[in-house]
Amino acid sequence: MKNQLIISSSPHVRGNWTIEKAMYGVVMAMIPAMLVSFYMFGLGALRVMLISIVACMAVEYVIQKYVIKGPVTITDGSAIVTGILLAFNVPTSIPSWMLIAGAIVAIGMGKMSFGGLGKNPFNPALVGRVFMLISFPAAMTTWPKPIVSREFFSFAGLDAKTLDTVTGPTPLGILNEQGANAVTPDYVNQLLGSMSGSMGEISALALILGGIYLIARKIITWHVPVSYLLSSFVFAGILWLVDPSQYADPLFHMVTGGLMLGVFYMATDYVSSPMSKKGMLIFGVGAGVLTILIRVFTPYPEGVSFAILLMNGFTPLINTYTKPKRFGEKQPVN
């Protein structure tokens, strides 16, 4: 026998579950939403997507190779996921240099400064997005409308006069500025993605499809998405019941803005969400309530990013106080 025997402690077999599988699984799940955004926004979406992914991977490479001088792990897929999520969170009209600045902050500050994958307390894509929102508020809140000829049915929910202009406010923006009476529900189009918004968030349907894929492949569990959706639905529903003229109905909240994107892809981020099932439920409920609070009671029309980032901050605390139920906690029989 030529080789030396290996001594290690049990177990001597490993499963085939890897970081790559999880990360590329998330990428797969985001493909429907990506296709919708290409369809709705055309080449601009492709530009944003490519720049974001390449910039995120490049920043990670440079930092790992020249700053940390450690192993380079850009192929594990986490930088790609961050890149796609960052692209999903910006309007397609964003200038390229702003996007690159966002990618540097997302990867450099949001992830690598804490020690790389697995160490970041906040979702890196959201860190990048919030940085851009605060630094370039105008560019980040000017949403191009989907290519007009591709409107499916009508353009309900938007002011008819803006139809021929290039940019338009999001339904949530209208809601925030003009109140619930200014928006008329058009769930079909909003589900399909025919509305203004950041490039990835427009089609709730495509995002839900990807989310179901993620849950079916056991990449994520149902706890965060379900509790997040339910709590925001219930909270928005209560407000709507109190005063339907002032507050939009809960379904409107569900299908507009980045809620679905946040629920399935960003709140479920492994690193920055709690570890136990109980903790995930608390996390989801907190994020849901915060989202609606921000949407309704603050000048910001959209609250998903802030809500998730805030809950990310609570994650260590949630982890400390929610322990999984241990085997044998029940009282013995005799």
């Binding site: 290996i6 290690s8 001597h12 490993r14 579950w17 970081i19 999880a22 792990t73 594990d76 986490s78 020690g115 790389g116 994958l117 697995g118 160490k119 569990t221 492994y270 690193v271 570890m275 136990s276 322990k323 999984p324 139920k325 241990r326 085997f327 044998g328 906690e329």
Partner: peptide, 24 residues
């Protein structure tokens, strides 16, 4: 017999999910 080198914990919580004793 050869396993890949260990990498960072990505806090995916799979270990808590599969632990038959409900530990972390």
């Amino acid at each position: 017999a050869k396993f890949a080198d260990p990498r960072n914990c990505i806090r995916c919580a799979k270990c808590t999910e599969v632990c038959p004793q409900g530990l972390e």
